[in-house]
Nucleic acid binder design. Structure first.
Lengths: 108, 108
DNA sequence: TTCTCTTGCTACAGATATTGTAGCAATACG
DNA sequence: CGTATTGCTACAATATCTGTAGCAAGAGAA
């Protein structure tokens, strides 16, 4: 079953970019992949799988394809996957998230 | 002791809060729910479903339970669901995301 | 009371998405 | 030739999500 792929980003029909982005990021491993690529060096697909708790290659490839199509990740031949400039901008918005996570963990 | 329910937040075994948080947020509708609750007034479960493209009540309740357990959302009797103080702090980290989404939509 | 309306929430079956294992072709070394 | 690696895929078993239907409890109104 070839080519007819369903819309790469659900929710885009509303035409509101934030919805499309929230939908893209709200898929398993997507946020994690971006997080693991935060360092400036590229990671091979297998190194990335290892970093992501040995996520299955099937879904890993699916997420990587979506992220590449979204222009957030790129595959550099002979090097591996890395964030694009746009992807790095997105990651920057996660930095406060890290600090929040620490506070959140101490809740209760 | 109700028997061991499966961990409310996957990935928490690593002990790294950011992983647990990324896992929690990386579930369908979770990011969207937080986004829709951004206004200061509470939303009933049905208003929330409507806002979230008529998401099914099953998964909506599941996500709301997780978010309540995580201390990010609360149910105010006779009023509806709303972000907790902690949840609102989390939302604050999303604001740059909105601006990013606009730039991202113009990619290519 | 009973009749409505709403609330939060759940059951259930069919449809999707994800996992885990295995393996492919291409490339690069020896 | 072998033996590695790379990115990537097939396939079946699971887990998760969807859509429809409906529950019990509470608030008014009659």
């Amino acid at each position: 079953m070839p080519a007819m792929k369903k819309s790469a980003v659900r929710g885009s029909r509303t035409g509101r970019p934030i919805m499309a982005l929230l939908d893209l990021l709200g898929r398993r491993w997507t946020l994690r992949i971006i997080w693991e690529l935060r360092e400036d060096h590229a990671l091979t697909s297998r190194a990335l799988r290892t970093a992501c708790d040995e996520a299955s290659p099937t879904i890993m490839q699916a997420r990587l394809s979506e992220l590449r199509e979204a222009g957030l990740v790129e595959l550099v031949a002979g090097d591996g996957y890395r964030l694009t400039t746009l992807g790095r901008e997105l990651f920057e918005t996660f930095v406060p998230l890290h600090r929040f996570a620490e506070r959140w963990a101490k809740r209760g």
